[in-house]
Amino acid sequence: MKRILKQFRGQTISIYIALIAVVILFSALSPTFFTASNIIIVLRQVSSLGIMALGMMYVMLLGNVDLSVGCEVSLLGIVMSYCMVEWGLNIPATIFICIALGLVLGLLNGFVVTYCKIPSIIATLGTSWIFQGISYTICNAQPIYGFPEGFSVLGQGSVGPIPIPIILFAFCALFTSFVLNKTVYGRTLYAVGSNEESARLSGVNTKFIQITSYVICSCFTILASVILLSRVNSGQPSTGIGQEMNVLTSIVLGGICFTGGDGQVSGSIAGVLVIGVLQNGLVMLGAGEYVQLMVKGLILLFALSIDSVKQFIKSRQRTAV
């Protein structure tokens, strides 16, 4: 018990409370909410968001942000659609191109932030406009469809009762948790995020860490874009627009520190689940998209203010040293 508590020390607990609260709330309001099939639906819906959130963690732990992930999903989707439909490439070749392009985009983001020394929020805002512009140009603002047989398996297929996207999400979560907690790279990432100057003076190649964080983030985005495209089964330039805000919301909910250096995978996943449960539950209750937006905003502010209030009380008392 003590060890579990120690795990949570210094981290936000409110997200877990919020998660349990929304689950109980919707279970009470709708009899079909807390059923195995619905839970699987929720998980499948959040899996691409979750994968992107995990990727974003690498960037956020350094105190940076990547606002271009949404538009990157769109761009990769459009390019893959174009390859398959206009050029008639087969699935492996298409995915190969997608991976190559994704890595280039990640490198581009990393380069702009690290070497051009533009604050990441501005730099990735810029690249996101570029990505968006390119995707609309390629497809002429028209959806592209007619993919080869079998492409939909990734997003729609399942192994036994469990959909493939959920498996991929779980794998990414385990992988990220492992990298961040157990590897030299991951721990160095935390060190740079926590005190860049100290890390630099200790001989850490902070530029390398920064660039790779964007490339890793991009890898997760690549996976998410393949899953999304295969689920929708048509390439649309608007697929990813606004996704970055959902990603940010969920990991900020999950207690990832905006200035870097602090936060756990478990928190991010909880954040993603809160968003997923809210979306699913509100739809079940018949609430429209706009109500969802409002509730999401309220939850975000509420969850974060719990922590601030807690910190405020602590700072006023400062009893325990």
């Binding site: 210094g10 721990r187 935390y190 060190a191 005190n195």
Partner: peptide, 24 residues
């Protein structure tokens, strides 16, 4: 090795990782 005038620790990390910072 230098102990700087200003603190140069990664505050959110455990002590042992600070000892090994840059050299895990």
């Amino acid at each position: 090795e230098v102990v700087y005038q200003e603190f140069n620790l990664a505050l959110q990390l455990p002590v042992y990782e600070n000892i090994f910072i840059g050299n895990l």
